[in-house]
Design a protein around this nucleic acid. Structure first.
Lengths: 231, 231
DNA sequence: GTCTATAGTTCGATAGAC
DNA sequence: GTCTATCGAACTATAGAC
């Protein structure tokens, strides 16, 4: 019977790569690619094994089954990403008088930078996040709750702190809507280029992020003036 | 060999329900439910047949294969929805001096009203749209291009017309971001309620739409002032 | 840890009766 | 148009050698 214990999130003072066989990492990388391309149901353990260059049985040895492999893959990257996000947010708030623009930047940039550069294969993890975040599937909901709700609450708190006129309720709506905007950036379907005859390039991260920050901050501040919190 | 011809989009002066057997409609309704729950790959023809109360072979008789069934299901609802959206948009523009708020309302309301009420089973179609819109899968991209790009261009044109300071490029970004916000509403994952301890209810369409219109218009106008078009 | 081989299930699609 | 029955392929997972 396989171990399939979930890797603990690496702490700041821990070695970069956990002490597991390199095959194990190759499997996670392959899983990221294949799940990103085909979704959970559409991906097959066979293709993941072939992509990783290992026998199919080895995946079961390391991760037990498809569900647990999927969760291990989420756990690995979300740990990296959300540690960076939390650190950046804390630094902004500790410095006092943080601008909303900086908080929104801290909300999005780590996700695309890790999702884009760390996964050597490209932006696979971002795509998996997009599909999980929009899914009503019980597994996706549980993973979102486990790996993303805690950091979401931190950012909602930050919204309320920076814009005291925002009620808690509107801060949560603002957060949900903003994450929705971020999806556009992470999904990278190429549709923006199609609709704009090439003017908008969703592979240009910096350009897109600049536009997104403007749009998202404008949206949040509009909620503020439309219905200011009177407490 | 089965027919599997795609149903033509009903014109305004055409009878409501096409002259196909009621079983055929039952199959499309069932497909909507099952595809919404499990996605394309996760759904099985067996479950769709059981949900529709017909033999599995009948689906192949009417729609040939799984791919074509999926497209027929998209074609049916997108026709209904986008006819309403185009009509409302044209009426707003013909009346002159349309408000951005009204255009954004015309962008979203028909989708949720049709997706929510017409599909007796609930909001299945909305969920399918969300997953298709965010997918890099070739099939999903082709369907989005075929059934949603034309109406998207109309709304982008409207953005440019109403806010002349908006460049074409920013209008496309604004459209993409706004659709992203709309996803929050259509996906209805229940996450907003979880993050707000029940304050935000994503089953309350009117409340959510009101907040979304405020946020989206604020976002679009922020792009305008941040980088006005000088033509 | 890693492999080959395969058991056991489920799937999409088809054949053919009515 | 609608059904029953079934084929052949693909899938997840396991057994067992090394």
């Amino acid at each position: 019977m396989a171990r399939a214990r979930l890797q603990a999130r690496p702490q700041a003072d821990t070695v970069r790569e956990p002490a597991v066989g390199s095959r194990s990492v190759a499997i996670l990388d392959a899983a990221e690619k294949v799940f990103a391309k085909s979704g959970f149901a559409g991906a097959s353990m066979r293709e993941i094994a072939e992509t990783a260059g290992v026998a199919q049985a080895l995946i079961h040895y390391h991760f037990d089954n498809k569900e647990k492999l999927f969760e291990a893959m989420i756990a690995r990257r979300s740990g990296e990403i959300n540690d960076v996000r939390a650190t950046q947010l804390d630094r902004l708030l500790a410095a006092g008088r943080a601008r909303l623009e900086d908080v929104v930047e801290a909300l999005f940039r780590p996700t695309i930078e890790v999702g884009h550069s760390l996964a050597r294969g490209g932006d696979g993890f971002s795509r998996i996040l997009v599909s999980a975040a929009n899914s009503v599937d019980e597994r996706d909901a549980r993973l979102t709750e486990t790996y993303y709700d805690p950091i979401a609450r931190k950012f909602i708190d930050a919204f309320c702190l920076i814009e005291p006129g925002l009620s808690r309720k509107e801060a949560v709506w603002a957060y949900m809507f903003s994450i929705g905007v971020g999806m556009t950036m992470m999904a990278r379907t190429g549709r923006s280029a199609r609709l704009s005859d090439g003017l908008c390039d969703d592979t240009d991260i910096d350009e897109m992020l600049r536009e997104i920050v403007i749009y998202v901050c404008g949206g949040i501040r509009a909620m503020l003036t439309a219905n200011p919190n009177r407490d």
